[in-house]
Each structure stands twice: as structure tokens, then as C-alpha cells.
Design a protein around this nucleic acid. Structure first.
Lengths: 341, 341
DNA sequence: TTGTATGCGTTATCAT
DNA sequence: ATGATAACGCATACAA
């Protein structure tokens, strides 16, 4: 099955390649007769433009790159879902890479995408990354670029975020409102901004409610896993048997906590109330159903793509583009795990 | 930041483009001296080959396409995960599209990928698809092509599968071995091969155990959702209060069943034992923990890519390639939801 | 309305 | 060891 080219159509029709090209792209300066002839033949021969050649000519590939820490996390699957759908609607395809939370991999992947000459990049940082060289490289090269969720504050690029601090404050306040007096926080790793912000939100809310801050009530995940939730739940109960509330950095961790509590007959929410973060699907099918902070993953994906699209269009027209930061709203979702009163 | 080209290097060094190209690709017929000069300058200028031009010349893009029904399903996330990692290790990038179980979308996406001239396509069919035109088109064009999990039997291409019939037989037998006498089956939609095979497996096993087959015990999902599990659980209990076992086509549906049973004080497994299919992460964190059939999603992804790679290599060398079918093993995972005795 | 010429950046063949 | 030339397929400025 040989590929049909403009040349082939031109030859069989006895006209020039230029005319064929113009006819196919509906240029006004082609006679109706030749246009039809070209269109018909093109259809017959199943002509489709060779995208490699088009890419080379137009210097764009109608492809964007997406780098995220983990495809398999519910939050990110959701974002991917939104981005590829939105991209497709706008004529773009999406190449997906995952950093597995490793800055080394992430660097290579940025390089891959740059070499591939994607038209833009959307990215959520690995836990190890900050405003590192590879990020600067993207910005220096003026490649349209949007970061979402796990971002670097210092980077001068478009961002799509939630207000993690505020959301964490709501979550902590929610537990306090439910009567919790001694609240543990299972936080994310030390480096990523959103783990930091959630921790700050927790701490600020204690202050605000005149609850003394006790650093031994803060447990730090390395990998933010179910297992860590399980282990920390055990530790919390052993070290602070009087804890009556747990705020976990993520639903997955909160689910680990619930699982441990369930297995050890620790009543949730009667003895300990639990709240997670992100509103994963899973959290509503557990017993007890997990209270959580709803993070609008789908909207984040849609917004990220649209910001990128704006920047790509500006870039193409060679007009300046001022990065924008979008902060989306979050809500507390109260379910059984914190329904005390 | 202008892109460095071979021409630029050639000009500043006062040599020809050809020589530069050769030097960079370690051809033997370049003097050590010029080679070094070229390599040094290339490094200085951060030269990277323009992939658009390379694509056009070599007629390959080092990119593959992946079409799946739903990014957000745990099973598919897992496969995606495996494929993009494996692809990256072998120098390929992956464009992902989701059909949302719609044959119309799927057709468009196949077209997109063909026009994009990806080097190969990996695909899992939508519930509406069979051996349709767009699938034939891929095969006719001799584009390297692998189907996994949801396949069309008729397509003459490589496939990576499990033996759904056999797996369903084990699952049903497992319930029978646990003492179930009246087993309901919540099956998948009527069209997809794996839903059919699981249903057949269920039926065959009843026969084998001299349990009369009762069609009213078979419930058919349209969309294979949590909600359907919930609804069918209700229906099962109402229509057949003496049912003592449920085999669900997928963990998600089984989780819906468990959720309904939990809320209505129907004891699992004492009154009704439940088994799912696919071993989603979620299924081990529920109460009771869900028994299921382990489906090796990660291996399926790895195997699919490697079959595709084989075919892409053969294709490049212009040597014939005989499609292969790989059938991977499954295991019953017994957890609380079926641990009767 | 149609066609000519040129270039996008690389690779490959064939001379020198 | 080096280079001139053509080709990949398309798009566009410019001529006719």
C-alpha cells in the first residue's frame, strides 16, 4: 500500500503540485473544475497529507507532551483523561510520560519531549523536583508550558492549582468542628510544595483554635502509599492513644489508616475521625465512607490544556504571552469517617 | 533561542554538511580531528537533530499509538503504565487515546493515528467494536498492530490475552467449592468477547457441577459500573433471596455489590459469597476484602509492547511477520468475601 | 487561474 | 577523508 502524494495526484491530473496543494486547502484561486478533479482523485486514492513533511514545513507537530509522576494514581488518571480528550477536540495528540517521582527520569523525559519538538508541555513535578535546570530549560526555550498541581513556585510559567493551604485549613477545621481535640497529621514528603502547604494549613488551623502544636503528631510519608497509612495508623495509636482525629495528605494514605483502624476495632469516627484529601473514587465505597477534600481533577486537566493552547497559539503568532495562574476551588466532602455528632 | 542545524555547524567549521552528519553518527570515514571539532561544537551549541526532518527522511517517528476504552480504569492504567515505561526504554514514545467505549470515537482515533504515521498501534477494543472496517484498515495497511484484552477473534494480528473462559470457570468453581449452590452472575455487555467468554465459563462450570442453569440469575451490565453492581445486588436479593454466591464480571461491579450488601446487613460471605475479576487495588482495602481473579495487567502491557516491537522491527527490515497470540495465566485470589468454611 | 522555484533539515549515493 | 547533489513531501512567495 504505497502512500499517495501531492506529486502523484498532480502527475495523473497533468497539473502542478502547487495547484493540487491549493485545491486541497481550499485556496480561493483555483478554478472550481480543477478543484473538483483534485478532490475526487484525492478521495479515490485515499490521499492524506504526510504529517512528517507537514511537521517539517510548518514547524509544528500538533502534539503535546504530558509528564506526571504516576499514571496509576487516581488523581492523575483523571487529569490525563481530561487532557487527552480536550486535546483531541482541539486537534492535538498527547504523548504521556511518567517520572515515577524520580527527578532523573523526569529530566530525561523533558529532554525527550524537547527533542521530539512537541508544541507544548504540561507537567506535574515529581517529589524530588523543584525549579531545576530541566524546568528552566523549557522556559528558556520558550516552549509553551503549563504546570499543574505539583508545581514550582519560582517558575515563571502558567499554573493550574488549588489552594492547598486553604483546603488543608478547611479539612483540619472540619475535624475540630466535629469535636476533635488531638489531631494527627500524616503529611507528604518534605520537598513538594503541596505537601508543605497542606502541613502549613494544618498547623495554622491548630493555632487559630488555640490547640497546641505537637510535632510528634506529624508523621511524614516517603512514598505516600497505602502501606504507610497502615503503618502510621499503628504508630499513632501506640504513641498517642488519645488521638481523636487524623488528617491524611491523600485518600490513599487515609484508606491505609482506615484499614488499620478497622482491623483493630478502633471505631471511626467515634474514637478517631479521619479525613483524606483528593476525593478518590475508592473513598466512597469503603466502610466507613471516607470524608475528604474534593480536588477538581477533571477541571484541572481541562484548564491546563486550555492555558497551554492559548500559549501555543500566541507562540505561533509570535506574540508575547503572559503566564497565568489559575486557582481552582475545593470543597470538604463530609462522609461517615468524620460524621461524629 | 534558534535551533542549531547541521548547516550551522558546517558553516562555522567551514566544512560540508555531509561531513558534519557523518561525524555525528560516527561514520568511520571521518578524520579523528574533524570528528572532534564537530562533536565539540555540537555540544557547545546544544545541537539536537530536528526530529521532523529525521522522520521525513527515515519514514519513522519512533512513536506508537495506544487506544483504550478508559484511561481511568485500574486495569488500563496499569497497562498504560507498563507500555509507556517499556516503550521509553526502547526509544519509543506513546500517544494515548481513549475511545470511551464508543466505536465512532475509536474509528476517528485510528484515523488520527494512521495519519500521524505512528510506527505501530496497540489497542483494546471498545464494547461496541468487533472486526470492523477501521481495524481491517490497520491490518491492510500493514501497520504493526497488537490487540490486548478486548480483542476481535477474527482479526489476523498479534494478541495478548488471558483465557477468560478458563478464568471464569475457576472463579465459579471457587464459589461452588466454598459451598455455594445458587450463584448469580453479573455479566458484561453482550458484545465484547471477554464478557461472552466469562459468561460461558460461568455456565460451563454450572453444568460440570450439575447445577441447573437459570437464565434469570444472569444480570447484564450496560456500562460495567459501580452503580450497576449496587442496583443488581438489590435486584438479586429481591428476585432470588436464596442466592448464596455472586460472580461479577469486574471488581468495580463486585464492589458495588459488596457496598449494597454492607448497607443492607447482608452478610458476606456467610449469606452470599462474592468474587470479582481483575484484582483492582481497591478490592483489597474494602471490608470485606474482595476475592477476585488476578489478571496480569502489567505483564500484558509489557508483552504487548514487545510483540509490537518485534513486528515494527520486521516491518522496517521488510521481512514478513507472523502474528502471535500470547495467553497469560490468571489466578484466583481468595480473600474474605468468599472465605466461607 | 496556474505554475516555478525555493526551503524546511536530514540522510544517502556517488564523486572527488 | 571530504563534499556535491538529490531526495523525502509539502507549503508558499512570487511570476506568468
Amino acid at each position: 500500500m504505497k502512500e499517495t502524494t501531492l506529486k502523484e495526484i498532480a502527475n495523473t491530473l497533468g497539473i502542478s503540485i502547487t495547484t493540487v496543494s491549493k485545491a486541497l486547502k481550499n485556496y480561493p484561486d483555483v478554478s472550481e473544475k480543477t478543484r473538483q478533479a483534485v478532490l475526487d482523485l484525492a478521495k479515490d486514492l485515499h490521499y492524506t497529507p504526510n504529517s512528517f513533511a507537514v511537521n517539517l514545513r510548518t514547524k509544528e507537530s500538533k502534539t503535546i507532551g504530558l509528564i506526571i509522576p504516576e499514571v496509576m494514581h487516581h488523581f492523575f488518571s483523571n487529569v490525563i483523561n481530561a487532557i487527552i480528550d480536550e486535546a483531541e477536540k482541539n486537534g492535538y495528540l498527547v504523548i504521556i510520560l511518567q517520572s515515577n517521582e524520580s527527578i532523573e527520569l523526569e529530566k530525561k523525559q523533558v529532554e525527550l519531549l524537547i527533542n521530539k519538538r512537541v508544541d507544548g508541555i504540561i507537567m506535574s513535578l515529581s517529589n524530588e523536583s523543584n525549579f531545576d535546570e530541566h524546568i528552566k530549560e523549557i522556559i528558556n526555550r520558550k516552549i509553551p508550558f503549563v504546570m499543574f498541581d505539583k508545581i514550582s513556585k519560582l517558575a515563571n510559567c502558567s499554573k493550574v492549582l488549588i489552594d492547598d493551604q486553604k483546603a488543608a485549613m478547611s479539612a483540619t477545621q472540619h475535624l475540630i468542628d466535629k469535636g476533635c481535640k488531638k489531631i494527627a497529621h500524616i503529611r507528604g514528603p518534605l520537598n513538594p510544595q503541596n505537601a508543605i502547604d497542606r502541613y502549613i494549613g494544618y498547623k495554622k488551623t491548630l493555632d487559630k483554635n488555640q490547640i497546641p502544636y505537637d510535632p510528634t503528631l506529624v508523621y511524614t510519608c516517603e512514598n505516600v502509599t497505602f502501606q504507610e497509612g497502615l503503618d502510621f495508623a499503628k504508630q499513632i495509636i501506640e504513641e498517642h492513644p488519645d488521638v481523636d482525629g487524623v488528617f491524611a495528605v491523600t485518600d490513599l494514605v487515609a484508606v491505609g489508616v482506615l484499614s488499620y483502624f478497622n482491623d483493630h476495632k478502633i471505631k471511626v469516627p467515634q474514637q478517631v475521625a479521619v479525613i483524606g484529601f483528593s476525593n478518590w473514587f475508592m473513598s466512597q465505597v469503603l466502610t466507613p465512607k471516607l470524608s475528604t477534600v474534593d480536588q477538581p481533577s477533571h477541571e484541572m486537566g481541562v484548564a491546563s490544556f486550555h492555558l497551554l493552547l492559548e500559549e501555543m497559539n500566541a507562540h505561533k503568532e509570535n506574540i508575547a504571552f503572559a503566564p497565568k495562574t489559575l486557582i481552582l476551588e475545593t470543597n470538604i466532602i463530609e462522609r461517615d469517617s468524620s460524621r461524629k455528632s
